[in-house]
């Protein structure tokens, strides 16, 4: 009994796979990389890590509380025994 389970794709299935892959990769042509002269927004301070000190303090606070990782980002209380 192998009639229903013979899933060997024929020639047409191969072509269909190629056609689908081509169609999918064709969508990538809509994505153009950001050009060097278009990086004004990326160069803004808020786009860097630690660009906003208040935001950094807040996310550190949330991290310490949620992850029970008090002091993990500094020296004091980080398990160094120096406190």
């Amino acid at each position: 009994m192998n009639s229903g389970f013979d899933r060997r794709p024929g020639k047409h299935a191969d072509l269909a796979v190629v056609a689908i892959l081509c169609a999918l990769s064709g969508g990538c042509t809509l994505l153009t990389p950001v050009q060097p002269w278009q990086k004004g927004t990326l160069a803004r301070p808020e786009m860097t890590f630690g660009g906003d000190s208040l935001d950094l303090k807040n996310s550190e606070h949330v991290y310490q509380n949620r992850e029970a990782a008090s002091g993990g980002s500094g020296v004091g209380g980080g398990g160094c025994g120096c406190n």
């Binding site: 899933r7 794709p9 299935a13 190629v18 892959l21 990769s25």
Partner: peptide
């Protein structure tokens, strides 16, 4: 498995297009 045949022929085609 016959599926790997696809990778052989069609894969090469896709690779050529990307290249």
């Amino acid at each position: 498995m016959s599926f790997f045949d696809v990778k052989g022929r069609a894969g090469r085609g896709v690779a050529a297009i990307l290249f």
